[in-house]
Every structure is written in C-alpha cells, then in structure tokens.
Design a protein around this nucleic acid. Structure first.
Lengths: 230, 230
DNA sequence: CCAAAAGTGTTCGAACTACACCCATGT
DNA sequence: ACATGGGTGTAGTTCGAACACTTTTGG
C-alpha cells in the first residue's frame, strides 16, 4: 500500500459521457438513451458511466462505448472535462466527454431497442439531462475542426461508400453546400481513395461507383509531408 | 441533504494543472515550479492544485492561476483531462490541464523567487513529474491551432507592442520564418490594430512603432462575418 | 421517353509567395 | 560613416470559387 499523500483533499465521482455520432445519408445523428436510474430516470441523455477504480479515463470511455454499441475499437477522442458544481442534480459529479464516430448501419434496431436508444438528428436533439446538450454542441465544433484536416469522416461511412455519400457527409458536418466538381477534384488530387468496379444502385438509377479509403496510401503520403484538407 | 444516489461508485482525487505560457521576444516560455510536497518533492513540475468541494474545475484552475501569479482574469482554456491510472506516483489522481497566456513582464523576479518558479524555454523544458511534459506538448499543439484563427496571441504581449515583436511571436508559435512584408500586409488588411505615435527604441536605433490590439474593432468585424487568420 | 442522380473541365479572381531596397538613428 | 533593425510594393503563381451540360438507366 502506498502512503496516503493527499488524504486532506476531497474526492469526487468522475464519469464519462459518450457522444456517439452517426450519419444517415443526409444528416448527422447522435445516439440518445433513456436514463435507467435516478436522478432524472426516464429522461433523454447521452450514454455514460462512472469511472471505476482500476481503469483510466480512456478505458472507461472505451468500456462504455463497447457496452452500449457492442462494437470494439471505435474511433474516439476526448472532448473535455465538465465540472460545474451543480451539473449533476444527484451529487457532485465531474464528467469527461468523449465523442465517437460510427457507422449507423452497424446498429440493428434490436440493439437499439435493447438499450432504449434512439438516433436523433443533431438538428433536432431534445432537451437532455444536465449539460449533455452542451457536450453535443462542443463535440460538433470539434468535429468540424478535426474533419477539415484529418480523414476522420470515413469512420461515419460504411467501408465502401460513394462520392455523393461522402460529399453529403461533409455538407452535413460543415452545414453548407459544396460544389460537386470542386469536391471531386480535390479528392482526386489527394489520391487517398480506391475506386471499386462495383456500383451502388440504391441512390439512383445510374448508380454511383463505390470507393474505399486507402489508409496505407494516406499514411505513406503523410510521411512525405502531405496534409489532408477538405 | 440530497440522497446519495451514487454511493456504490468510486471517488477520485481531481486536480488541475496550469500550463502558463509567456513570450520573451524570441521564444515561448513555460512557468515551472519546484514541487513543495511529496511525492516527487523538489522536482520540476507545472503548478497545480486539487479541486475543492465547493468549486468547479474552472474555478479551481482560476484560483491556482491567481494564487501563483498574483494576477486575475488571465486568458485560460482547458486542454483536457489526464487520467492514466499510474500518472501520479502518490495516489490515483485525475488531472484537468488548463493553459494560460500571460505577459512575462507582469512577473517580477521577486514573485518568481517567492514561488520557486522559473521560466523555461519550451524548447528546453527539463523532465517534469508525471505526465506534465505531455501536457505541455498538447498545449503547444492546441495553441498553434487556436492562434491561427483567434487573436489570442496578444495575451502574450504587453498592451503596447511592435510589429516585429508580434511577428517574432507568431514565428515562435509556428516554429517557422515569416516574410515581414506579407505578415504586415495581412495585419493591415485585417484592420484590428491601432497604431500609436510612440516608438519602442529598445529593439533598434530607429525604433519601431507601438501598436495596440483594438478589441472593439475586432468584435465589430466578427459580427460582420470577418475571420481572424494569421 | 423521361425523371433523377452521376459524372466531367474551364475560366476567373483572390490570396499567397517570393523578393530587394531605402530609412532612421545611436554609437 | 556605418551598422542595425524598421519599414515598404510588385509580379508571378497557385488555389479556390463559380459555372452547365452529357450520361445512364429504372420505371
């Protein structure tokens, strides 16, 4: 047992909350849960959990993510710590928010029901408990910055996606319209996508070619001082 | 007394650590302290402190900043939460890092001695305790992003500063050389500086004109959709 | 045959880069 | 008089923005 160096100090409950973002071909969505315990039971909230004695913050966030999605190794990044005194109406709780980017197709409606979870368009998020709405706002700001300079957007799409899908995604992230030709020109110049022979026929009669993000190519270009930018 | 909703959960010590950055006409500097208590007493570290029961994280960071600089209302922004299990060698402590941008001239050598504090060039920071070196690294990355799009750099300079000083600052932040004429052209175009009649004669025989950041003008331009960018 | 989305190049202007000389003054 | 840093303008290039028509095919 180590000495109790800090015994005069106060201890706090520390939780993690997860902002799980998905994309449904038109808009960004966030996964919301009906809270299963007091206080505020039955209200909409983000999925969260208390940090346990033996785990780091990252581990806690990763555990919560896996527990409530059934998926491992999701893209995940810290948003920040939230610590207003009265932010939790139960007791004083400090929370560290993490956001994650997922492919909505990986969530069956059974999984969602099992967890009392629903996807909500980020433009139509209801009032959530505590400061969870603020966490979502902060996450979206962070995502906009991040997506502009790092290829994180691909986490929101299936492995195989079409260029119109990709463009819709960036339009959703930036809340703006992009020019089709300029968008494709840029991607073409970056040379980080793999064009497949296969077409997606769901979106149109003509069909759009599938592409895949080529991580090896991207990593290789990075080493040569290349910078992603969209 | 509110009900003890979460009594089965674990509580943690939560601290704040402050990365205080200054600029000395040539390079970014960070304020380091000799730690005054165990464990790791006498080692170099950032200034920090435990969060107390009655204060938010921000309030704690603000208190620590004021306590160890004697200055109120410093520019301050959260860097993130650090929570590896073994990051603190004493006991398990979660820490939230904040960085602050200060004017080094506001620190007398007496103040520094009083606190066992020294300025260290960010390029020559010694080994610090725990994950404090990492916190500084993360802060510098954050500052580079922030300084490019927000006028935060002025916090590192005296109220009155010269254009060569300002340029040196940005060169220090970005670790690159900037072209004098292009730099000035950009600033001129932004029209957020007030040119004074007074000259600073310390840097050269000829002297360089003092300028001030005009916050009113900047705020006004912001409303019109203007974006700062350097 | 037609509606609906996919795909494709060029032109223009703005913004960034590169670059060299004169100025003011303390010593 | 000279060394030192402060101050200024222009030309060339690159990058981003605007823009319209053809193709494919399921219904």
């Amino acid at each position: 047992m180590t000495a109790a160096f800090y015994q005069n100090e106060t201890k706090f409950y520390v939780a993690v909350d997860c902002i799980i973002l998905g994309f449904d071909q038109k808009e960004l969505n966030v996964l919301l849960y009906k809270r299963k315990f007091e206080p505020m039971m039955g209200q909409w909230s983000l999925m969260g959990g208390f940090i346990k004695a033996g785990e780091s913050i990252e581990e806690a966030a990763s555990r919560v993510l896996t527990d409530c999605t059934g998926i491992d190794n999701l893209f995940m990044e810290q948003v920040g710590a939230y610590g207003d005194i009265t932010r939790d109406l139960g007791e004083r709780v400090i929370s560290v928010a993490y956001y994650s980017l997922v492919n909505m197709n990986d969530f069956s409606s059974e999984t969602l029901e099992e967890y009392n979870a629903v996807w909500a368009k980020v433009s139509e998020v209801p009032q959530l408990i505590f400061d969870h709405n603020q966490m979502i706002t902060d996450t979206l700001a962070r995502l906009r910055r991040k997506a502009a300079t790092r290829p994180v957007g691909f986490n929101l799409l299936p492995e195989k996606f079409t260029l119109p899908q990709l463009q819709n995604l960036y339009e959703a992230i930036y809340q703006t319209q992009l020019d089709k030709r300029n968008f494709r020109k840029k991607l073409n110049a970056m040379d980080i996508l793999e064009k497949l022979d296969e077409k997606d026929k769901k979106g149109s009669k003509r069909g759009a070619f599938y592409y895949m993000f080529n991580k090896e190519k991207y990593d290789h270009l990075l080493e040569q001082g290349f910078y992603f930018s969209l």
